[in-house]
C-alpha cells in the first residue's frame, strides 16, 4: 500500500508545470524515504531530478518500494481539477496498474477522486556523481527567470560567466549583444533577495536559452535558485521546495568549435 497526503495540492501543480515541457512521461519511485523522479528529456540534453521527502508530507505510508510510470500531461489534467487549497492524497495498491488522486476541500464540502492508468516505462536509473563545483551562485529565482526571458530575445544561447566580482549573463545575435551583470549583495536581512557567490575558480559556460527558460517554470516553487557550475560538467539549476524537497535540472553545456 502506498499513500501520500499533502495539504497543498498547489505544490504538485507547480512541480508538474515545471517539468511537463521537458518530459512527456516519467517514473515516480516511491520508497520509505519519499518520492523520487529522475529522467532525461528525449534529446538527452537535460535531466530532471525531483526529491520529495516522506517527512514533508502530512501523511506518508509506503509498505513496499513502488515505481509508478505516469504520463505527465494526463497528470496535469487531473491536477487542474483541484483547487490550490485542496488537500491531495495519492494512493496505489502494491503492484497496482492504477493510481488514485483524491482532492478534498478544506471543510470537506467537496471530495473528488481521479484514477489514472499507470505506464510501464522501464526507465534507466542514473547515478549522478558528486561534484565539487567551481562556482555556486544563489540568486532570486524571479531575477534569474527575468534574465533568461530577456536575453532569449537576442540569441539562442546564454553565456554565464562567474568571477569573484559577480555573474555575467551574455548573449548575441542578429540584433546585437546583451549583457546583464549581477553583483553579490550584502543584504543579510532579506535572504530571498540576496545574491551570493561561492567561487573556487572562475567559470564561463554557454547554455541553450530554450532549456534555461524551461527550467524557470519552476520559479513559483522557490524564492531562490542555485546555479552550480564547473568546466566540462552539466550546469545544475536547483529549486528548494520549502519543507518538502528539491527540484534540480541538469543541463549539458554547448561546446565551442
Amino acid at each position: 500500500m502506498f499513500e501520500a497526503r499533502l495539504t497543498a495540492s498547489a505544490t504538485f501543480k507547480k512541480i508538474l508545470d515545471a517539468i511537463k515541457d521537458l518530459l512527456n512521461e516519467a517514473s515516480f519511485d516511491c520508497s520509505e524515504s519519499g518520492i523520487q523522479l529522475q529522467a532525461m528529456d528525449n534529446s538527452h540534453v537535460s535531466l530532471v531530478s525531483l526529491m520529495l521527502r516522506s517527512d514533508g508530507f502530512d501523511k506518508y505510508r509506503c509498505d513496499r518500494n513502488l515505481t509508478m510510470g505516469m504520463n505527465l500531461a494526463n497528470m496535469a489534467k487531473i491536477f487542474k481539477c483541484a483547487n490550490n487549497e485542496d488537500t491531495v492524497t495519492i494512493k496505489a495498491q502494491d503492484d497496482a496498474d492504477i493510481v488514485t488522486f483524491m482532492f478534498e476541500a478544506k471543510k470537506q464540502e467537496k471530495i473528488s477522486d481521479y484514477e489514472m492508468k499507470l505506464m510501464n516505462l522501464d526507465q534507466e536509473h542514473l547515478g549522478i556523481p558528486e561534484t565539487d563545483f567551481s562556482c555556486v551562485i544563489r540568486m532570486p529565482s524571479g531575477e534569474f527567470a527575468r534574465i533568461c526571458k530577456d536575453l532569449a530575445q537576442f540569441g539562442e544561447s546564454i553565456m554565464i560567466s562567474c568571477t569573484k566580482e559577480g555573474v555575467k549573463f551574455s548573449t548575441g545575435g542578429d540584433i546585437g549583444t546583451a549583457n546583464v551583470k549581477i553583483a553579490q549583495t550584502n543584504n543579510f536581512e532579506k535572504e530571498e533577495e540576496s545574491v551570493t557567490i561561492e567561487m573556487q575558480e572562475p567559470v564561463s559556460l554557454t547554455f541553450a536559452c530554450q532549456y534555461l527558460n524551461s527550467f524557470t517554470k519552476a520559479t513559483p516553487l522557490a524564492s531562490q535558485v542555485q546555479l552550480s557550475m564547473s568546466d566540462n560538467v552539466p550546469l545544475v539549476v536547483e529549486y528548494q521546495i520549502p519543507d518538502l524537497g528539491h527540484l534540480r535540472f541538469y543541463l549539458a553545456p554547448k561546446i565551442e568549435e
Partner: peptide
Amino acid sequence: TSTQGRLDGFFTVL
C-alpha cells in the same frame, strides 16, 4: 559556432 552537448557519459547507469 557551438554545438549542443549531451548528458550521456556524465552519469552512470545504475
